[in-house]
């Protein structure tokens, strides 16, 4: 028996999955419901009222099928996954199936009992969104009074139990001066922190979230190098630019997402097409999604391979899709943000 460092193993199976077209990594949206009311969220309010989200047994059935076709990494997300009463049953089942899991959450609903079990189940990461450090900014963003204390209490429960944590934040008007403090907090717990300075339009195409977007340039001058580093370092997670495949992230090659209604789709942000797993079977849905994705090629609208802003840009086909329902268009919001980041980078 060989004990391998996790990252080596990950790299090895990731490379093979890409070659063979194995669905290795799935983001599973367990619900669109959420106990927070963040105005910048990409999930439209109308989605939260939709009926027919997956029942526990249906989630289990999908997990069984994912296991059968070789999936290994599951990201549980929402909405807020912990609003589901059966969340711990689902996590336990996923671990019993032999998945490695990451949970994306606002953290506010994790109590000490759940933290105890999470400490046993040891997800690869509990990834918590920290909107701000100050109570005032935090609760303006979440729209829920008392939410800051709940989230920081949960973080303490989990950290005490040595659960692997990660944090992320969106740069918003309310928190643009607090980003460095969030980074410092994450560092004090030895946890990574990711930064989204672009935001996404909503799944229904509404660009309202852009209204709430903040500017990294508004961070204190002495904090800017660190804030910028965090923004640029995220690119290191992506593989090198592959010119004949638009989906650098692996969508349609080794990665996909599943909606709270049991539909397989490309990623969280691309809501079309959706293949109903409960009506068909996952293997067939994945085959159809792979074929569709492989037909999407760079066309005359695709500019990244000759764009000088590319090193600063977070463009992906999902951004184009949400902008004008194409997969190759250079959408202006992302381009504008890339220009700002280049300027900020040159000034430091």
């Amino acid at each position: 028996m060989k004990t391998q460092p996790y990252n080596n193993f990950w790299q090895q199976i990731h490379d093979t999955a890409r070659k063979k077209g194995t669905l290795l990594r799935v983001m599973l949206e367990l619900t669109y419901n959420c106990n927070f009311k963040c105005k910048h969220c990409y999930v439209p309010q109308s989605y939260r009222k939709k009926k027919g989200e997956l029942k526990t047994e249906e989630v289990f059935s999908i997990l069984d099928q994912l296991k059968q076709i070789g999936c290994f990494y599951l990201g549980f997300t929402g909405g807020e996954p912990f609003v589901r009463k059966d969340i711990m049953d689902i996590l336990r089942y996923a671990k019993r199936c032999g998945f490695e899991i990451i949970i994306y959450t606002n953290g506010s609903l994790i109590d000490e009992k759940m933290a105890d079990e999470l400490a046993l189940l040891r997800p690869n990461k509990v990834d918590i969104t920290i909107p701000a450090m100050s109570k005032d900014a935090f609760e303006k963003i979440s729209g829920v009074s008392g939410s800051r204390d709940k989230v920081f209490n949960s973080i303490e429960f989990l950290h005490k139990r040595k659960v692997n944590l990660g944090f992320k934040s969106c740069v918003l008007k309310e928190n643009e001066t607090e980003i460095k403090e969030i980074q410092d907090f994450a560092a004090s717990l030895g946890a990574p922190h990711r930064l989204d300075d672009l935001l996404s339009p909503r799944l229904d195409g509404s660009e309202e979230p852009y209204k709430y977007r903040g500017e990294m340039i508004k961070s204190r001058e002495q904090d800017r190098p660190s804030v910028l580093d965090c923004r640029l370092s995220e690119r290191d997670e992506s593989p090198e630019l592959i010119t004949d495949n638009l989906f650098k992230c692996g969508v349609g090659v080794s990665q996909a997402a599943i909606t709270p209604f049991g539909e397989l789709k490309m990623c969280l942000m691309i809501d079309y097409p959706k293949y109903n797993i409960l009506e068909g079977c996952l293997r067939n849905c994945w085959q159809r999604l792979k074929e569709l994705t492989s037909d999407i090629k760079p066309d005359e609208k695709y500019q990244c391979n000759k764009c000088e802003l590319e090193p600063y840009c977070k463009w992906c086909p999902a951004k184009a899709w949400l902008y004008n329902k194409t997969f190759t268009f250079c959408e202006p919001e992302g381009r504008g943000k890339a220009e700002q980041v280049r300027q900020l980078s040159n000034n430091i």
Binding site: M1, T3, Y6, F9, I13, A17, E100, L120, R122, N124
Partner: peptide
């Protein structure tokens, strides 16, 4: 996974979190 047999403890210790057991 990828023709390799691996063992995964459901309840990992904190030492086990960054490693994986593979079998020949």
């Amino acid at each position: 996974i990828d023709d390799e047999t691996i063992l995964l403890p459901i309840y990992k210790t904190s030492d086990e979190i960054n490693s994986i057991y593979t079998l020949n």
